[in-house]
């Protein structure tokens, strides 16, 4: 078999029995566009148990085929059963591509079934483009901390497995097709072979930590921050604006703020009404997580900083000085 014998693009529908993970729906919409170009069928692969309203959201994306998986071992996500499931299904149907949402669980099993199938896996793409010359999908991913973009392909092997960062594509359903083929597959995985046991789940809300994704105002600190001794003034500014502090990866790496406050592609994606950014260079890994903010103000001493490209208004200047001035101005307004 050559790569051209592999047909159709699959999207793994991640769900908890009640709701579909948003990234799966986003992926269906993007994969629809690819299939329109390649002529492949768009197939949604979901473990059975979704309510009708959720299934309707899948159909609305214009899928050609719905594969419903039955069997034991899938009630709770686990690496063992899901790795086996996609290995078995891919061996039977030979899809050209399998897209998996880049959630923690998606990234947990996608590379493993790719390795088991001995095929290529790419991760965290922010763009997917079909190259008609090679017949390959080009997965475009930020690399080296977002300082460059890398085009990654699976040139020989199939399926092309890729995880896609949540929030990258939009859920813009093109409408349900008149005919959708429904396939039922039963792949039993012996629950005794599942090597992890869930002892407890602690929902995030319980720990009282900052949930930046829900904030309306965010003050974001970049590597221009000289040290944690300066954190106080930015906290004060955030308080005055009624918001919370966020940061970029270097600030997290320096141990100044926790991971939950790291904004970007591999951290939190924020969409506040106002984001004020201090000392942030503007690498794409970071901007991917904040570019959809309503109003973005950027402060940086380097007039060529990339952050000014995504900002609505920029101030070139020393971040600490500007912060002090803003605090003063806000206090004066009160």
């Amino acid at each position: 078999m050559t790569k051209f014998d592999y047909k159709n693009m699959w999207v793994y529908i991640e769900h908890d029995g009640t709701t579909i993970s948003t990234v799966s729906l986003e992926l269906l919409c993007e994969a629809r566009k690819l299939c329109d170009v390649t002529g492949d069928k768009l197939v949604a692969v979901a473990v059975d148990g979704l309510p009708e309203a959720e299934l309707a959201k899948i159909r609305a994306t214009g899928i050609d085929q719905m594969m419903v998986v039955h069997g034991t071992g899938y009630e709770r996500y686990n690496n063992d059963a899901y790795t086996n499931l996609f290995t078995v299904l891919c061996q039977k149907y030979n899809p050209s591509a399998v897209f998996v949402g880049g959630t923690t669980n998606g990234r947990d099993f996608a590379p493993r079934f790719a390795a088991r199938l001995n095929t290529g896996c790419t991760s965290d793409a922010i763009e997917v483009v079909y190259n008609p010359e090679s017949g390959d999908i080009e997965f475009i991913e930020p690399a080296v901390g977002g300082k460059m973009m890398a085009v990654i392909t699976v040139p020989v092997l199939r399926p092309q497995v890729g995880t896609i960062r949540p929030g990258t594509f939009k859920y813009e359903p093109v409408g349900e097709k008149a005919e959708i083929e429904v396939i039922h597959e039963t792949v039993d995985f012996d629950p005794a072979l599942i090597r992890t046991k869930l002892l407890k789940f602690i929902p995030e809300e319980d720990d009282g930590a900052v949930n930046l994704a829900a904030e309306e105002v965010v003050v974001c600190l970049g590597n221009g921050l000289s040290g944690s001794d300066k954190l106080g003034k930015y906290q004060e500014l955030a308080d005055l604006l009624g918001g919370k502090l966020g940061c970029t990866r270097p600030v997290f790496d320096r141990g100044i703020l926790p991971f939950k406050q790291m904004i970007g592609q591999s951290g939190v994606v924020v969409k506040p009404k106002l984001l004020v950014s201090f000392g942030v260079s503007g690498a794409i890994n970071h901007t991917a997580g904040m570019k959809d903010a309503g109003t973005i103000i950027a402060v940086n001493s380097d007039p060529d900083a990339a952050i000014f490209g995504v900002a609505d208004y920029g101030i070139v200047g020393d971040m600490d000085t500007v912060c002090d001035m803003m605090i003063e101005a806000l206090k004066a307004r009160q």
């Binding site: 007039p303 990339a306 020393d318 500007v322």
Partner: peptide
């Protein structure tokens, strides 16, 4: 290897908004 990197390129610089130039940092703030 299952994957290759046929090419890399610098990220596009976004168009961007307005860098304020009111004459001084105080005035910009």
């Amino acid at each position: 290897s299952g994957t290759i990197v046929p090419r890399t390129y610098p990220p596009e610089k976004a168009e961007g908004g307005m860098i304020l130039d009111e004459g001084s940092v105080e005035k910009n703030v």
